[in-house]
Simulated assay, not measured.
Amino acid sequence: MPRLADEGLYVASESTFYRVLREHGQSQHRGKARASTKRPRVEHVASAPNQVWSWDITYLKGLVRGAFIYLYLVVDVYSRRVMGWQVHQEESTDKAAALIRSCWAEAGRPEGLTLHSDNGGPMKGATMPSGVSDDS
């Protein structure tokens, strides 16, 4: 099929191919990797500041082509206040954990704080202070 696509001939969309495979029981997971598992979506609601923080690491283009710098950012979900940020030359679990700990200390160590993030490597590996629940 890729050869036909290179020639500008399209038989069906990618989603149609997957649908037909599913209908014929041919879309089973293959390979050594585990099949993905469905998890319930967690919703966070904040009714005041320092109840839920969200954080992430964003890639920013560096001065050299193909090189990046990393913006670590922590935001309070309720007030949308930037609780802290740092820029580093590498993505690091230790740097992420240090930023979270310093933001938490500067905010007065709020008890019961929920820290939300995606499931990136540093988010999974960062050691959080006690009193902060890491609800990725």
Results as ranks from 00 to 15, higher is better:
39 R>K: 13
121 G>M: 12
101 R>K: 07
124 K>F: 08
89 Q>T: 14
73 L>I: 13
86 Q>K: 15
108 G>S: 05
82 V>I: 15
93 T>D: 04
11 V>A: 03
27 S>P: 03
119 N>G: 09
41 R>W: 03
42 V>E: 02
135 D>N: 08
111 E>Q: 13
126 A>V: 03
118 D>G: 14
15 S>C: 07
31 G>C: 04
18 Y>M: 13
128 M>F: 05
85 W>S: 04
114 T>I: 15
81 R>T: 14
20 V>G: 02
130 S>I: 00
11 V>G: 00
112 G>L: 08
46 A>Y: 04
3 R>I: 01
54 S>K: 00
20 V>A: 09
26 Q>E: 15
93 T>F: 03
15 S>N: 13
71 L>N: 09
24 H>A: 03
36 S>T: 02
84 G>A: 10
45 V>N: 06
68 F>P: 01
45 V>W: 02
120 G>M: 04
18 Y>H: 12
46 A>V: 02
68 F>V: 11
107 A>H: 02
19 R>N: 06
90 E>G: 07
121 G>R: 13
17 F>N: 06
112 G>R: 15
56 D>N: 05
132 V>L: 10
132 V>D: 10
55 W>M: 10
36 S>H: 12
110 P>G: 04
26 Q>N: 11
7 E>I: 13
71 L>C: 07
75 V>F: 05
52 V>A: 05
41 R>V: 05
53 W>A: 02
48 A>S: 14
94 D>E: 14
90 E>H: 09
52 V>G: 02
131 G>V: 14
32 K>E: 06
12 A>G: 03
68 F>L: 09
81 R>L: 07
15 S>W: 01
111 E>I: 09
34 R>W: 04
122 P>L: 01
21 L>E: 11
